[in-house]
C-alpha cells in the first residue's frame, strides 16, 4: 500500500511537471477500495422452508442445556461460563495461508432481543418467550415445527422480520437449531 501511494505521488508529480496547463489528474489520488464483491459474497440466500428432522425436539437435559447456552450467549469469546457437554467455545479453522486459527464459536445471542426464564439484560425487539410451552404449545397456538422454522429462517412466515436467520446462513446446523428449539418449548418449571 505504502509503495503504491509513493508510485501515485510520483506519478502525479511527474504529470504536474509534464503539463503546465493541465492540472494533475486527481481521480486516483485517494483511497476508494472496492466493497461490492465483499457484499456480494456476504449476501443472504433466499428464504428457505425446512422440515424438522426426526427426533428434533427432545426433553434430554444435556441437549436442552446446549440450547440454553446458545440462547443466552453471543460467542465463545464473550461467554463466561464453561459450555455444556457437546458445545465448544472455539473452533479451529484453516486460513488462506494454511495456518490453523482458533475462531470463537458463534452462539445465538437470542437474549439480545427476547426475554425468557432466567434471562439477564434481555432485549424486547422480539416477543417475550417466557412460559412459551404453556402459552403456545399446550394451547396448540404454535407447534414445534413452527418454532424450528422460525429459528432456522424466520422469513418464511414473516418476510419483513427483524429476527436473525440461523440455518440458511449456516450459522448453526440442524442439530443446533433443534437444541435451541427444544430449550424454548421445554417445561422450565423446576
Amino acid at each position: 500500500m505504502q509503495r503504491k501511494i509513493k508510485v501515485i505521488t510520483t506519478a502525479v508529480m511527474l504529470s504536474a511537471v509534464a503539463s503546465f496547463v493541465n492540472a494533475a489528474d486527481l481521480t486516483k489520488a485517494y483511497e476508494m477500495p472496492d466493497a461490492s464483491k465483499m457484499i456480494e459474497k456476504d449476501a443472504l440466500a433466499k428464504p428457505t422452508k425446512y422440515t424438522m428432522p426426526k427426533g428434533c425436539i427432545s426433553t434430554d437435559a444435556e441437549l436442552i442445556a446446549r440450547g440454553e447456552y446458545i440462547f443466552h450467549n453471543l460467542n465463545g469469546k464473550k461467554a463466561k461460563k464453561t459450555p455444556p457437554k457437546g458445545l465448544v467455545k472455539f473452533i479451529e479453522k484453516k486460513g488462506k495461508d494454511g495456518k490453523v486459527k482458533k475462531k470463537p464459536k458463534q452462539y445465538g445471542n437470542c437474549v439480545a432481543c427476547h426475554n425468557i426464564e432466567g434471562a439477564k439484560g434481555a432485549g424486547n425487539i422480539g416477543p417475550d418467550l417466557t412460559g412459551y410451552k404453556a402459552m403456545f404449545i399446550d394451547t396448540k397456538t404454535r407447534d414445534n415445527q413452527f418454532v424450528f422454522q422460525k429459528i432456522a429462517d424466520a422469513r418464511i412466515d414473516n418476510p419483513k422480520t427483524h429476527m436473525t436467520i440461523n440455518l440458511t446462513t449456516k450459522l448453526f446446523n440442524e442439530r443446533e437449531i433443534c437444541d435451541i428449539a427444544s430449550y424454548i418449548v421445554a417445561d422450565k418449571k423446576k
Binding site: M32, D34, A35, S36, K41, Q106
Partner: peptide, 13 residues
C-alpha cells in the same frame, strides 16, 4: 456479523 467493508468504499460513502 456483517462482513466489515472498508472505509472510503463507494458503499461506505
Amino acid at each position: 456479523l456483517l462482513k466489515v467493508i472498508p472505509i472510503g468504499s463507494k458503499e461506505m460513502v
